[in-house]
Simulated assay, not measured.
Amino acid sequence: MRRRRDAERGSMSLETAVVAPALLALLALIIIGGRVALAHQAVESAAAEAARSASIARTQGEAGAQAEASAWAALDNEGLHCSSRSVAVDTSGFAAPAGTPASVSATVTCVVNLAGLQVPGVGPQTITKTMTSALDTYRER
């Protein structure tokens, strides 16, 4: 009986040494996935806010400025730090005559740097989201 215990004596340490790196890699993937999911949600929220702000503006020029300002504010409120960001607003719906259904859309692009996680092969991720908001059909444009 004594021999069997001696043979298994170091097996627990060996199993831990084999399993620990795999568990750490899995934990790193979960953290990266969570950060990417939160970034996608923040950019989508910023795009929705930008489209909504543009749709309630009175003029086409005012719509672009309000959309950009609200997108930056939404990204800042979410705590998302973009190394590069841009907002593109399609305000062509303002050219439609009153009584015609029209909409505006906003596209927000954010480059999120995930290199701070110290995981090999993980770098910047570009996230782009587009949202659309309807203009009031009977409002003067």
Rank of each mutant, 00 (worst) to 15 (best):
Arg2Phe: 01
Gln125His: 12
Ala67Leu: 05
Tyr138His: 11
Arg85Lys: 13
Thr132Tyr: 15
Ala39Arg: 04
Ala71Ser: 08
Leu117Ala: 03
Leu24Met: 13
Glu68Val: 10
Arg85Thr: 02
Thr130Trp: 05
Ala74Val: 06
Leu75Thr: 01
Asp136Arg: 12
Met1Asp: 13
Ala96Thr: 10
Thr137Glu: 13
Met131Phe: 12
Ala63Tyr: 03
Ala73Pro: 08
Met1Arg: 04
Arg35His: 14
Ala73Asp: 08
Gly33Gln: 00
Asp136Asn: 09
Ala71Pro: 09
Ala65Trp: 07
Ala25His: 03
Ala7Met: 12
Gly93Thr: 03
Ala28Cys: 04
Ala39His: 05
Ala50Phe: 09
Leu75Lys: 03
Ala46Glu: 01
Gly93Val: 05
Val19Thr: 15
Ser103Tyr: 11
Thr107Arg: 15
Arg4Val: 12
Thr130Val: 15
Arg139Pro: 07
Leu27Glu: 00
Ile30Met: 14
Val112Ser: 03
Ala51Tyr: 08
Ala17Pro: 00
Ser103Phe: 11
Leu38Ala: 13
Val119Cys: 05
Ala67Ile: 02
Thr137His: 09
Ala48Trp: 13
Ile31Pro: 00
Ser105Trp: 05
Leu29Ala: 14
Pro21Val: 02
Leu27Gly: 08
Ala47Met: 09
Ser105Glu: 06
Thr107Ser: 15
Ala48Lys: 11
Val104Thr: 05
Gly10His: 04
Ile30Val: 15
Ala74Asn: 04
Ala63Gly: 06
Val36Leu: 14
Arg9Val: 07
Ala22Phe: 06
Ala7Lys: 03
Ala98Cys: 11
Ser83Lys: 13
Gly99Lys: 03
Ile32Cys: 08
Gly121Tyr: 05
Val112Asp: 04
Leu117Pro: 07
Ala88His: 07
Ala51Trp: 10
Glu68Arg: 12
Gly116Arg: 11
Ser11Ile: 13
Thr130Met: 10
Gly33Arg: 00
Ala57Trp: 09
Thr126Arg: 01
Arg141Ser: 12
Ala69Tyr: 03
Val87Ile: 05
Gly79Asn: 06
Ser83Met: 14
Gln125Ile: 13
Ser83Asn: 14
Gly79Glu: 06
